[in-house]
Amino acid sequence: MLQINNVSKIFLGQRKGLFGHTEGFKALDDVSLRVAKGKSFGLVGESGSGKTTLTRCILRLETLTSGNILYEGADIGKLTPTEMRRLRARLQIVFQDPYASLDPRMTIHDIIAEPLVIHRDIVPMTARQRTERVLELLLQVGLREEHLFRYPHEFSGGQRQRIGIARALAAKPEFLILDEPTSALDVSVQADVLNLLHRLQEELGLTYFFISHDLGVIRYICDEVAVIYRGKLVESGPVEDIFERPTNEYTRMLLDAMPDPDPDRSPFRQAASA
């Protein structure tokens, strides 16, 4: 469904003289991957690994230095603005920070209805139909009717993330980019949101592109996983394989560093008892 072919992205360094630049920073280096329809694809990486740059490239918020990104066979970089707008209705994103990604001056109704207003040529609806759709979405993500005309600051982090998910789902997309959607949440809330994402995928047949630094979360939600380190994919494959039989040194280190809530698995205790 989504095909990323040999994508590189170099951020230019500071301007030097009239035409020159200092040496640029290679955020993505020859990245290739494929996301299958109806599946969850996980991208694991630490800060500065280029995972956010990759999502920005998919959404065409950045231009590629080389390579291309195909969505159902169409090159995203070659779409006309109108075609791109149509694509944005089908390809949505949920952001990491539920506090920063909702406009503080808009009601929940207006936030969730926004994609419907923007894409009214694709999903023609009357104002009343839009409100009904928003209500349907609210219930779908586990919020209630009376939340409709409140403002974002009145909600907890988990509730806000549900609002962000409802907004992403409003125009009935088929592909969802989830950029660390639970990393700002408490674990118990994270569990609820992850289960919600599971349920929505089953109900709506969505394809997920899930970005996280948390291997546990990736393991829980994804079918396939790719590990990115300093702009390069170091390893990718089915989730079972990568977690049970990592071949790459960096992947193994990540798995080892993952703090497990079982005290017996603590490296310090193991060292002490050995």
Binding site: S188, V189, Q190, A191, H198, G216, R219, Y220, P261, D262
Partner: peptide, 21 residues
């Protein structure tokens, strides 16, 4: 117990996570 059940580890299977619920 609920808190421990809500943490996804390298061994948690799909559907096993529980929130506070």
């Amino acid at each position: 117990q609920a808190l421990l059940n809500s943490i996804p580890t390298a061994h948690t299977k799909r559907g096993e996570l529980r929130g506070l619920g």
